[in-house]
């Protein structure tokens, strides 16, 4: 055997390589079956970055389906509630350039909103309850409905179905606890100061 290998170096090398590749292939194949991950981990990761408003503005019925669509190659800039921050996060996750928000799907909301039902006008039709994707509306047939504010994502899907138009989207009230300092205006330099909006107001 050894003599044959010494006498025929090329075929024996090929044989050894073939044997190696076969064994590694077998190990890899076994690992692929044994350590198979259930579901698509990428979809989960993408879904974790989406804002979970379930508003459908991206054209998918919920955030998870959009995450699936992104994993399948859809553009990452179709989510207005997430805004640029979500796009940036998705871009860094997927290793692509971050595009700006696609205006076709709407503008990023300036302030957070929650739905509010004018309770004296509500007739108890339950249409909004059926439309709410996160079960944030409480009520029953012929009974007044109300929105659980802490659970509402402000997706505005309940406004359209209301027959008496008693649902408004109101900006979330900011209390002392929610308040945070703002970043200073970094673009102001000494020569800008004379033209800055503050000084302009002061001089008028």
């Amino acid at each position: 055997m050894l003599d044959w290998m010494i006498n025929n170096p090329v075929p024996s090398a090929l044989l050894v390589l073939a044997a190696l590749s076969l064994s590694f292939g077998a190990i890899l194949g076994f690992a692929a079956v044994k350590y198979k991950v259930e579901g698509d981990p990428l979809v989960e990761q993408i879904d974790a970055l989406l804002p979970q408003t379930q508003c459908g503005q991206c054209g998918h019925p919920g955030c998870k389906p959009y995450a699936q669509a992104i994993a399948d190659g859809e553009a990452i800039n179709h989510c207005p509630p997430g805004g640029q921050a979500t796009i940036n996060n998705l871009a860094s996750l997927l290793g692509v350039e971050a595009p700006s928000l696609d205006a076709e799907h709407g503008q990023a909301p300036e302030v957070k909103q929650v739905a509010y039902i004018r309770e004296e006008d509500c007739i108890g039709c339950t249409k909004c309850i059926q439309a709410c994707p996160v079960d944030a509306i409480l009520g029953a047939q012929k009974k007044m409905h109300t929105v659980i504010e802490s659970e509402c994502t402000g997706c505005d899907l309940c406004v359209e179905p209301c027959p008496v138009d008693c649902i408004d989207l109101l900006p979330v009230k900011e209390g002392v606890k929610e308040w945070a300092w703002e970043k200073p205006d970094a673009h102001l330099i000494a020569t800008d100061r004379a033209h800055s909006p503050n000084s302009a107001q002061a001089s008028v």
Partner: peptide
């Protein structure tokens, strides 16, 4: 909050 919303959804 978004985790909670996802769970509810």
């Amino acid at each position: 909050k978004s985790d909670k919303a996802r769970e509810r959804f």
